[in-house]
Design a binder for these strands. Structure first.
Lengths: 129, 129
DNA sequence: GTTGACCCTATACTAGGTATAGACTTTACA
DNA sequence: TGTAAAGTCTATACCTAGTATAGGGTCAAC
């Protein structure tokens, strides 16, 4: 199949597929006589794997490491477990930050009401502090 | 005061201060004979305002709009209230996304234990799906 | 033969900075 | 007075994970 079909089947844009290839994440594939990229079912599986990882917010470098690990079936998978665990820690931390931000924003919001003038705006006054 | 002192007092790096100036967020200031930037107390207040806004995750464009609004003291401050409100909505939404991600990650994590081999790794198997 | 859909590469752009290189200015000290 | 160190200047490149565009080539149908 050509890149357009792979794009539709995978849900990745054509640009993204070419981008992944350039990043060394997605193997460069065979080309047709006219220099078109030609993919098969295993390309689709590989791309879906990448997409799954991205949906977990793994970085491209981390995904590369995962792919590397996958190529050594007899090694220990500890690094994979660690990666997931560290991500959970990071996400938990980020959530806490955002909760705090939300609180600050709600305090801001309650410092003012509509229909005031800029010079009386409670929000702007808080921002000045 | 020179940029180094302003940097220390504001907590913004020197690069960041120059970056804000370039973005039109922070007014270009007077220069010394040797072309050094010279700031005063009002520069510090302005920079702190910007820093407050950035700590709320307001974008540079949004901060510009706030600064613009501040220059019209007699206009209504509705746009300021809307900005804060919209940010709360965005943050709330982002938190929900991250909570979902966290759940997915924890399901992933519990699919495997350390000391397995890569080919038996429960995390990798989930990622293949 | 020409139209339209598809594909190619290369390059620039996004946000909010950070990091360098190479040069100039100022300050401190001997 | 000379010099070394610290501070500052501009310009440029880099970061992430793509997205957008320009300018061209390929392929199938009509």
């Amino acid at each position: 199949m050509k890149i357009g079909e792979l794009s539709k089947k995978s849900g990745c844009s054509i640009q993204t597929i070419r981008f992944y290839e350039k990043q060394g994440l997605f193997e460069a594939c065979n080309r047709s006589e006219g220099n078109y990229r030609i993919y098969d079912a295993s390309s689709l599986r590989a791309l879906r794997f990448i997409k799954q990882c991205r949906s977990l917010d793994l970085t491209i470098i981390e995904i590369k490491q995962l792919l590397d690990t996958k190529n050594n079936p007899n090694k220990s998978c500890t690094s994979v477990n660690n990666l997931i665990h560290q991500h959970m820690v990071d996400v938990t931390h980020r959530i806490a930050e955002l909760e705090e931000l939300k609180l600050t924003l709600s305090e801001m919001a309650s410092a003012c009401t509509d229909n005031r003038k800029v010079k009386e705006c409670g929000v702007l006054q808080l921002l000045e502090e």
